[in-house]
């Protein structure tokens, strides 16, 4: 009875995902398709210029890490990829930002449609005050999936991928808020991948976690790289070297005359190069720990 309905649902879901049709698997050495192109992007909050003149590509099926000190605009740039900055009053993006060839800030672009393909995991785990099951099923449900069997399947698959299934399979009806910090963050990751996004943005996903939970999340990120493109902001340089293929280093430009601080992208490249052979002296100072 339910079989044909399931097929229909699967099809409608997969149409959200150009990845399924166009996937070109990148080898770890040569970059694959650039999924994002950022050209001369500056981001403002009202009159305040938070980041100036950022240009970089993000490649498919890679982990790109954004490192740099506080106030260097890493998170601001990350949040521009799925238009989360739209939610901040007065936020404005100048320059060009494309996703698979489409202008992210184009006239007819819906932020909602963007966010369905480009998911986000936040610094502080933010499970909804709902059951574990409903947390994971939330995204699929708002995308119109109502079929119980199909939802069950998505929930199990997402929780398995997030390495949380074994810990919660017997208490799916319990509140998502009852989980520990590390479990809650993995629940949030499961919730994000349940909508099968194309890209997962992570804003310091492990900064609130203990070392063991951090390793679990890092393992998970390496796993997810097979299917997703990941951009991660991290304060932890060891973490960047452990998990990322490419690294972008941001720094702060201080204008003492006007007393303004603006974030700037100093350099980006393969992680190994950034850490072992940085081109810019600021990068070198930062990665060797001589500058905070």
């Amino acid at each position: 009875m339910e079989q044909p309905e399931q097929d229909v649902v699967t099809q409608t879901v997969s149409t959200h995902l150009p990845k399924l049709e166009t996937t070109v698997r990148a080898t770890s050495q040569t970059p694959g398709t650039a999924i994002f192109e950022v050209k001369n992007v500056s981001i403002y909050y009202g009159a305040f210029k938070a980041v100036t003149d950022v240009s970089l590509p993000i490649y498919e099926n890679e982990v790109t890490a954004f490192i740099g000190s506080s106030g260097s605009g890493k998170s601001t740039v990350l949040r521009a990829f799925n238009r989360m900055n739209d939610l901040v009053q007065g936020a404005r993006v100048d320059g060009e930002m494309t996703y698979r060839g489409a202008d992210l800030y184009g006239k007819d672009v819906s932020a909602t449609a963007v966010r369905r393909r480009i998911g986000m995991v936040f610094q502080k785990p933010n499970p909804f005050p709902k059951s574990i099951y409903d947390n994971v099923a939330y995204g699929p449900r708002i995308n119109g999936i109502r079929n119980k069997a199909r939802l069950d399947e998505i929930v199990e698959k997402s929780l398995r991928r997030a390495a949380l299934w074994d810990e919660v399979k017997n208490r799916l009806k319990q509140s998502g808020l009852a989980l520990s910090g590390g479990q809650a963050q993995r629940l949030c990751i499961a919730r994000t991948i349940a909508v099968e996004p194309d890209v997962v943005l992570m804003d310091e996903p492990a900064s609130a976690l203990d070392p063991i939970a951090t390793l679990a999340v890092e393992d998970l990120i390496r796993e997810l790289k097979q299917n997703y493109t990941i951009v991660i902001v991290t304060h932890n340089m060891q973490q960047a070297t452990r998990i990322s293929d490419r690294t972008a280093f941001f720094s702060v430009l201080t204008d003492s005359k006007n007393d303004t601080r603006t974030g700037v992208l100093v350099e980006h490249g393969p992680t190994q190069q950034i850490f072992e052979d940085p081109r810019d002296s600021r990068t070198q100072a930062y990665v060797t720990g001589r500058m905070g």
Partner: peptide
């Protein structure tokens, strides 16, 4: 209601 919950929902593509 914490804003982080609203953001979590927006990030999943909710209107």
């Amino acid at each position: 209601v914490p804003d982080s919950l609203r953001q979590g929902s927006y990030a999943l593509g909710a209107t």
